[in-house]
């Protein structure tokens, strides 16, 4: 059982409302009176990896807990976690903070090409498509780096696109990841300040991940993507793996990550030349 280091022990003894019971995650919202409405606990199985503010269980345990929540608590009810968490003997606290890393330029560019090839080969239009947001990603990333991401752009990005974490939000989480990887904390701070007023315009789950991203905390799948980029992994395989995360979220996030890394390198090379 792995637990995000930021999760308080009290999470396991406090009641929660069930928000969502899925195959890849169970999402609970704190029912404590003093809790903010956005306080979520994400329970995930090993194959999904640990999420910010979450607990990651062995496959068997996850499905036992999931079945328990489904059978004893209707989705709108509340659940106490003390019963099942007490059965897990081994805990590992995992720090999900994304540290600054060196990413080879050649890897970024190769991944940028692979992402572009992937998205163009699947380009569709309409309300179910993430493509319009993905196409805007380089421009959003450039603006984020220049600290001039305007309200107009944010209003059509935050909460935009398919999925329970809309594509626009996933792109922004990817951009935050890229800024943290390159240690651009001033840009992180400015982008966070710009985004906060727009958080009510998206879903509960997305707000959770966006807030974590502002603080530099990301799910293990994001860490894996960064590892691959840093290790000069096969770009097509990276995209393939990203595409297995949700219907569109993994690729949306990778698009944001790669866009901001590429934009940052371009910016810095221009500065160096100057």
């Amino acid at each position: 059982m792995r637990v995000d280091t930021t999760l308080m022990l009290s999470a396991f003894t406090s009641p929660f409302h069930v928000v969502h019971v899925g195959q890849s995650a169970v999402v609970l919202r704190s029912a404590r009176k003093q809790a903010s409405g956005d306080e979520l606990l994400i329970i995930s199985p090993e194959r999904s990896g640990l999420m910010p503010g979450g607990v990651c269980l062995a496959h068997v345990d996850f499905h036992r807990v999931r079945a328990d929540i489904l059978s004893h608590n209707p989705p709108t009810g509340s659940v106490l976690l003390a019963g099942w968490s007490g059965q897990s003997a081994v805990w590992a606290l995992v720090n999900l903070n994304l540290a600054a890393r060196a990413i080879p330029a050649v890897s970024v560019l190769a991944h940028q090409r692979a992402v572009a090839a992937h998205t163009s080969s699947r380009a569709t239009a309409g309300p179910l498509s993430p493509e319009p947001i993905r196409l805007k990603a380089p421009s959003i990333a450039q603006s984020a780096l220049a600290a001039n991401l305007g309200d107009e752009m944010l209003s059509v990005t935050i909460g935009a696109g398919p999925g329970t974490t809309p594509s626009g939000d996933d792109v922004i989480v990817g951009i935050f990841a890229g800024l943290h990887v390159f240690g651009l904390l001033n840009e992180v701070s400015i982008l966070a300040r710009q985004i906060v007023p727009f958080l009510p315009r998206t879903t509960l789950a997305s707000r959770h991940y966006l807030k974590a991203a502002m603080q530099g905390r990301f799910g293990q799948h994001v860490h894996d993507l960064v590892d691959t980029l840093a290790g000069d992994g096969d770009p097509d395989l990276t995209v393939q793996r990203a595409s297995q995360w949700g219907a569109t979220s993994g690729v949306d996030l990778l698009v944001g990550l790669v866009s901001v890394l590429a934009a940052s390198m371009n910016t810095r090379s221009v500065e160096s030349a100057a």
């Binding site: 309409g126 309300p127 179910l128 319009p132 209003s155 059509v156 990005t157 935050i158 909460g159 935009a160 696109g161 398919p162 999925g163 329970t164 809309p166 626009g168 315009r201 998206t202 879903t203």
Partner: peptide, 21 residues
Amino acid sequence: IRVGAVMATPANRGILADSDM
């Protein structure tokens, strides 16, 4: 003819409107 299934965020309402949906 066409289907939309999205979270009803303000941005997605805009996308639905642009698609006449």
